[in-house]
Simulated assay, not measured.
Amino acid sequence: MAAKFELTALSRIAKLGSDTAITGTLIACAYIGAGGLEQPLDVVAAVDLEPTVDAYFVIFRFVPATSTVGFAQEGVGRGTARLVNFNPNDVDTDVVLNLFIQLSNAKQDGIDLRVGDRCRTEVSAAIRFKGIIHPVAGSVSNLNSTFEIPRFSGCGQAEDLDPLFTGLITGPDNDIRTTLRSLGPP
């Protein structure tokens, strides 16, 4: 069983108190194991997310900043799914996607910070998709979760900006509200 979804999300960066819009697609495949539908299905998932250009943040509550925020998936997402009351239109899903968060074109008050092209989290952030998903084409599913943003590495051409981005962004309790609109089988 496989489904493709149009993904839109709004992520609230806790330390900055700012929102970032995310768009892209998600493809998920569920596999029936030896236990049949009585057991949880194994799920693999992949995302293709568009970079968020000119994401707007306010640092220290008064300094405007913009950046392009990109995402690179590490491996495939893995998890489980179970049909709710054996209904294939309602699937209770628990999948974790590991995403590196990348920063580029960062500007503080219009001044280019020259972050370079290798600025990203040291390790991937684990984003959990847990809840009821409706895979029938045209159906909409809403999922909410929190995640931790790891430390940043590789930031800065003229000077090391890793401590700056780590101090401003890294931390727990970042919210993500995701809407998945099913496009049917991939």
Rank of each mutant, 00 (worst) to 15 (best):
S141R: 05
V136R: 11
P163F: 07
S139D: 14
F152K: 04
F165Y: 13
G156H: 01
A158D: 14
D160V: 08
E148H: 11
F147Q: 11
P163C: 09
G156W: 00
L161Y: 04
N144D: 08
F147T: 07
S145V: 02
S141E: 01
A158L: 12
G154D: 03
P150Q: 09
L143G: 15
R151M: 09
I149Q: 12
Q157W: 00
L164Q: 09
L164T: 12
P163G: 10
N142W: 04
P150A: 11
V136G: 04
F152Q: 05
L161R: 06
A137M: 07
L143K: 14
Q157A: 09
T146W: 05
D162F: 08
D160C: 07
G154M: 02
G138A: 04
Q157L: 12
D160I: 06
F165A: 13
T146I: 09
F165C: 11
S145L: 05
D160E: 06
N144R: 05
G156M: 00
S139V: 06
G156K: 01
E159W: 04
L143S: 14
A158M: 07
G156F: 00
N142G: 08
I149C: 13
S139G: 08
E148D: 14
A137I: 02
I149N: 12
L164M: 14
G154K: 03
N144A: 09
S141F: 01
S141L: 02
N144P: 00
A137Y: 02
S139W: 04
F165R: 10
V140A: 13
N144G: 05
S141K: 02
F165T: 09
G138C: 05
G154H: 02
A137N: 10
V136D: 11
E148T: 15
A137L: 04
A158C: 05
G167N: 07
I149R: 11
G138K: 03
S145E: 04
N142I: 08
G154Y: 01
F147H: 15
D160T: 09
L161A: 12
G138P: 01
N142K: 14
T146L: 10
F165H: 10
R151L: 10
C155P: 03
A137V: 06
G156I: 00
V136Q: 12
E159L: 13
F165K: 09
